[in-house]
């Protein structure tokens, strides 16, 4: 059994954002494509938590959706436990699908409002035929217990629960197919901080108990630092840095990683003055040439405007930056 559970190679996704055909003909415009992710490579080891951080438009959710088969990659391949994922083939994917699950951002949208909680959690069990008859609901009761709710809650509807409780229900559903790998897309960003702590603690406990592997998608660096072993930083659909968890926070390499860290509000009241971050994320339909970060980068020079930097290993992290590569910063 190999150590790597999930491998992503050259993952690229375009979205066709062209106007309708007739408008294009009349206004003499070409087709327009938005590059949501470009040539993304990473590996997730069994039992670890790998995090992808980035701001809106960085392509982190697109990557998550491609991994679980909600979106088809334009290019590249995804390998799960040595098997290449091919979502078009239903039968071959069926056994593979049971082994990964997803937790969504908005617990108010991720549970069907017309279903009983019990049926929501039982859906994966029934779909994969993991239990029959009365055993299904017994399993549901056990799962509810695992996530800190009571078996009696199965008879209620989602609207009877608070946001944090709903997220527990969503986690119970994700666990119900006994997966090894769970993609968590901003699992706490819709929750209040005190509830966020409960959910993050629960996710950690479950990881220890079931040996789960997580892919954590988040824009919140403090959550990412708390939860992950390794972190990938995304900017405009490209992975600019991959580093061990604590290392990224003590010694960020890429100028964008540094900027993100600087932008985190300082709760410790150390009096540290936040560094002003210049500018905003450019339009992904027409990204800047070369390194997409160069218009905001304090270390940009001629080469950054022409060539796209490739990830280079240094100091235990992979960084896609010419300034780092050439040892200028």
């Amino acid at each position: 059994m190999s150590d790597v559970l999930l491998k992503v190679e050259g993952l690229t996704r375009y979205f066709d954002v062209s106007k309708p055909w007739l408008n294009r003909v009349i206004e003499r415009e070409d087709k327009q494509f938005l590059t949501a992710t470009a040539d993304v490579n990473f590996e997730i080891k069994r039992g670890e938590t790998f995090a992808l951080v980035g701001e809106s438009g960085s392509g982190k959710s697109t990557i998550a959706k491609m991994i679980v088969g909600l979106l088809e990659p334009s290019e590249g391949k995804i390998t799960f436990d040595g098997q290449e994922m091919n979502f078009a083939s239903g039968a071959a994917m069926r056994t593979l699908r049971r082994r990964f699950q997803m937790i969504f951002q908005d617990p108010f949208a991720s549970l069907n409002p017309r279903w009983h909680v019990g049926d929501i959690i039982a859906e994966p069990i029934r779909t994969f035929g993991l239990a029959k008859g009365r055993d299904v609901m017994r399993e549901v009761g056990r799962l509810l217990d695992t996530v800190g709710l009571s078996a009696a809650d199965a008879a209620k509807f989602p609207h009877e629960f608070s946001g944090g409780q709903r997220q527990r229900i969503a986690i119970a559903r994700a666990l119900s197919s006994k997966p090894e790998f769970i993609v968590c897309d901003e699992p706490t960003s819709a929750l209040d901080v005190s509830v966020q702590a409960q959910i993050l603690n629960l996710m950690r406990d479950l990881q220890d108990e079931f040996g789960l592997t997580y892919l954590l998608i988040s824009h919140d660096l403090s959550v990412v630092r708390h939860m992950s072993n390794r972190i990938g930083v995304l900017y405009l659909g490209r992975l600019v840095e991959v580093a061990e968890g604590k290392r990224l926070f003590t010694n960020p390499k890429h100028p964008y990683s540094r900027m993100l860290l600087d932008a985190v509000p300082d709760l410790a009241l150390s009096g540290r003055r936040r560094q002003q971050v210049e500018g905003e994320i450019p339009n992904p339909i027409n990204p800047p040439p070369g390194c997409t970060f160069h218009p905001r980068c304090p270390h940009a020079f001629e080469r950054c405007k022409r060539e796209i930097p490739q990830p280079v290993a240094a100091d235990g992290s992979l960084t896609a930056c010419f300034a780092v590569e050439e040892g200028r910063i």
Binding site: S194, A197, Q198, N201, R204, S222, R225, H226
Partner: peptide, 16 residues
């Protein structure tokens, strides 16, 4: 206590 920070060292967050 429940807010994760960039400097904290413990594995578990305080939860209410």
């Amino acid at each position: 206590g429940s807010i994760p920070t960039l400097t904290q060292t413990s594995d578990r967050l305080v939860q209410i």
